[in-house]
Structure formats: C-alpha cells, structure tokens
Simulated assay, not measured.
Amino acid sequence: MFNVLLAKDHVKGIGTQDGSAKKDEDFKDKSQRQVQFNPGQTRATWRVRILTDGKYEQAETFQILLSEPVMGVMEFPAAATVEILDPSDESTVFFPEQIHSVEEDVGELFIPVHRSGDISQELMVVCYTQQGSASGTIPTTVLSYSDYISRPEEHGSVLRFDKGEREKRCLVVIIDDSLYEGEESFNVTLSLPVGGRLGIHYPTTKVNILEDMDDGKACLRCPPSSYFQ
C-alpha cells in the first residue's frame, strides 16, 4: 500500500520498473500513467496484469513506482515490490493411486507414477520400497519368507522422465511361494526429486498382498508331519 498526503484534485504519476520479471513477458501494465484522487477519496486502484505461459519459473520481481505528485507531497514508501510466484506450473511427481491390492502370484507389479505442471524439462525421482508387515529382500539373496524384491533408496531406483513425458512405471517384483500367509502390506515411496517437487497426493502408495487362499487349502491337505519339516 502507498501512503500519500491527499489534497483536492490530487494527481500522482505511477509506473513500473523491471526486475527479474520483465514487462510484456511476465506482466503488462496500463498505458495510463496517472492516478487521480477526487476530493474526499483516500484510495485508488491501478491494475497490473500478470502473464502466464504454462512454464515453471522461479520467483520473479518487479517494482511499481510513484512519482511527481501534484497538489500533494510523497510519503514513504514511494515504491512497492511485486513478487510473482509460480507454484502451479512447477513440475510435480506423484502416485495417482494411494493403494494397490494384488494377488501374490501377480509377479511383476508396475505402479504408475505421474507428473503434472511444466513437463518441458527432464525430471528424476527415486522410487523405493519400505517394509511393513510384508518383508522385502534383495535379488541376490532371496530369503525365505520374503514377500517382494526391495528397491533401496539409492541411484539404482531412480525413475527418469524425459522431456514431455507424463508417466513412468515403478517396477516391484512380488515373490510367490507355497507358504500360506494372510494379507500383508508394504509401502512404495518417492523421494529426492531433481527437476521438480513431490506432490501432496500421493508421495507414497501402499501395496496390499492379498491372502492366498490356494496356499491355505494346500496346507489343510498336508499330513501333520509336514508342518515340522
């Protein structure tokens, strides 16, 4: 807000000054270069149009300046800084679904990962697993009672979006064994984005491995001694 000492038929010059934001690229001001206050008027509006281009940009600024008062004097401040923020255009990566439920014999589970906003540049993000009631293991040492192949939070788990690409798939291998198990779950999480940010909905998705009734029926037919082998 600008504070001025007002007088009858008070007129004040007004205009913009480029900063990191540029006139006619990031904003457009009015051709009218004066603001007039009529007798008794204490507030006036001078509009500046902010231009959007659909591309993500860091915060940019420009100034609005008051000058050359007529029938009045200038008070501080005579300039205001306008900051243009662009969060809606920032490239954002996320899981479109919060929960995935699969059978144990699904084998390879491809979890969609989407991005929105400005997709004109590359983006990289780590997609890794977090153990829950289901246990993970690494490919070289598949352990008994493991339910899936883990994706560690490291370079080998990076997904790379090329320019213009909106969807990638995060692969998790589900281990199918002959042991009866109830429903179990683990999480798959996105982290460490480069070239964008994580979305609020959803940076993590839950994978439910459903109860395998076929394994349960098989065990019911096993001889008693087999339980202790």
Rank of each mutant, 00 (worst) to 15 (best):
E57L: 05
D24Q: 10
R169L: 08
V48E: 08
D176V: 02
V48K: 06
T129C: 01
C222S: 13
D147G: 02
A80D: 14
E103G: 13
C170I: 07
Q63A: 12
V126N: 00
S157G: 07
V207H: 01
P96L: 01
R47E: 15
I119Q: 08
V93Q: 03
P69R: 04
F186K: 02
Q229I: 13
V102A: 03
P152V: 04
E154K: 05
I99C: 11
L66Y: 03
G72I: 04
T45R: 12
L143C: 06
I138F: 11
P152H: 01
D215T: 11
S20A: 06
F95M: 08
S20H: 01
P223R: 02
Y148L: 02
E83W: 06
T81W: 08
E211P: 07
Q130D: 13
E153K: 14
V106E: 03
I149G: 00
D18A: 08
I84V: 05
I138K: 08
Y202C: 05
L159R: 08
G195M: 05
D24V: 05
K163Q: 14
L51Y: 03
F94E: 00
E104K: 10
E211R: 15
V82S: 01
I50A: 10
E103L: 13
I209Q: 07
P193I: 01
M1K: 14
P223T: 10
S150Y: 01
D212S: 04
H201K: 15
W46E: 02
M71V: 09
R33C: 10
V4Y: 03
T45G: 09
V70R: 08
Y227A: 13
D26N: 09
L192P: 04
D177E: 06
P193T: 01
D24L: 10
P39C: 03
A79H: 14
G19N: 02
S225M: 11
T204M: 04
H155D: 15
E165N: 05
L179H: 12
A59N: 15
R33G: 09
D18P: 04
G156E: 14
S226L: 12
Y227R: 14
L6S: 06
F27C: 07
K55A: 11
T141N: 12
S91F: 06
L5F: 14
G107F: 05
H10L: 13
D212F: 00
G132E: 00
V113C: 00
Q130N: 10
Q32E: 11
